Simulated scan of single mutants.
Amino acid sequence: MDSNRFIIAAHCVNRPGIVSAVSTAIFGLGCNILDSQQFDDTESGRFFVRMVFNHDTVTLDEVRAVLEPVMSELDMEWTLRDREHRRKVLLLASRFDHCLGDLLYRWRSGDLEMDVVGIISNYPRDTYKQITMGDIPFHHLPITKETKPQQEQQITDLIEETGAELVVLARYMQILSDQMSRSLSGKCINIHHSFLPGFKGARPYHQAHERGVKLIGATAHFVTGDLDEGPIIEQDVERISHRDTPEGLVRKGRDIERRVLARAVRYYLQDRVFMNGNKTVVFPE
């Protein structure tokens, strides 16, 4: 019989005895801890922990009932998830389709364990003729400066209707309003085609070319009300030379963007990402 496998992700103000209290409660259930990662951030004074544990018969509700008083005593912010639960994810894209296509491929191949509950774009569906979407609901929500509030309300409605637990901006080239950014705090990941904090805003590869950089990169980060300022989850770079044109940088950058966004989404789906002020704690695989 396959055992039930659970993941707990938690953080709180650091104090002695946290690991002991949590692991003792898990042991009391007769569970076996398979993996445990922890980090004590001495700068913020906060403690972060991720544990994976299993049991042949114990249920999620039974685990939650035992852990709730312990977590309350520790004043923990925590989540508990059955490893088999696949998070519902809503994908947003604009004209560029490379990140969207890559996420859908990784989802279908099993690399990203999620349920794609919809695709939203401010471009019509025939923009993505080369991508196989199958029966995934597609929502064309055009936007102008005047209709932005109404369009964002439509997105909000779809998030609620689908029960989306994560929103991914897969090169969705629209700036979210402060109100929407706040409502999606901690559950919206964006890919920026630059190695932040450098070259923010539009045409970052052209900015980089003008500065003669020798490395280009991409950054996946949580969305906040401050443009391209959200806590960084994942980054990667690639070396370039004086021979590269702006168009060449864009082409190379697309490959970086795909892998950076995919890693950030996978870390989130696996409960490895914690917001920590204007930074993140990301436990490695």
Rank of each mutant, 00 (worst) to 15 (best):
V117M: 06
L34T: 07
Y128S: 03
D236F: 06
R50Q: 00
H98Y: 04
G17H: 03
Y267D: 13
F138G: 04
D178R: 15
Q207G: 09
T132Q: 14
L141Y: 14
L34S: 08
V49R: 04
M51C: 04
P142E: 10
R108N: 10
D41S: 09
F138M: 03
G248E: 14
M1I: 13
D271I: 02
D178A: 15
V260Y: 09
E165N: 03
Q151W: 04
V281L: 09
M1F: 12
S72G: 14
I119S: 03
A25T: 06
V116E: 03
V117R: 05
V89Y: 03
A9V: 07
T144V: 08
P137D: 00
H242G: 14
R239G: 05
E73I: 01
E238M: 15
R108L: 05
S183T: 10
E43L: 15
F27I: 03
V49I: 15
M51K: 08
V52D: 07
K214M: 11
G101Y: 02
P69E: 01
C31W: 00
H209V: 04
V89Q: 01
H140E: 12
G30M: 07
E247N: 13
D82P: 00
I159H: 01
S177P: 08
T127Q: 12
V66C: 08
A93D: 05
C31Y: 00
D244M: 09
L184N: 00
I216C: 06
A218L: 10
V223E: 09
L269M: 09
G30V: 04
T156N: 10
D255C: 02
F199E: 11
I119L: 12
E229K: 15
M114D: 04
G101I: 01
K187R: 15
H11T: 11
S194W: 09
R125C: 04
F222L: 06
G253Q: 11
S72H: 12
F47C: 03
V281W: 06
N190F: 08
R211C: 14
G28Y: 07
N276T: 12
Q174T: 07
Y267F: 15
A93Q: 06
N54M: 06
F199A: 10
G45F: 09
H85R: 13
R46D: 11
I18E: 02
G201K: 08
S44R: 06
D244R: 09
G230V: 02
H98K: 00
L141K: 02
Q270K: 11
G277Q: 10
R86N: 08
F274L: 08
K148D: 05
Y205L: 09
H193T: 06
S177L: 05
Y205I: 07
I136Y: 01
M76Q: 06
Y205P: 05
D111P: 01
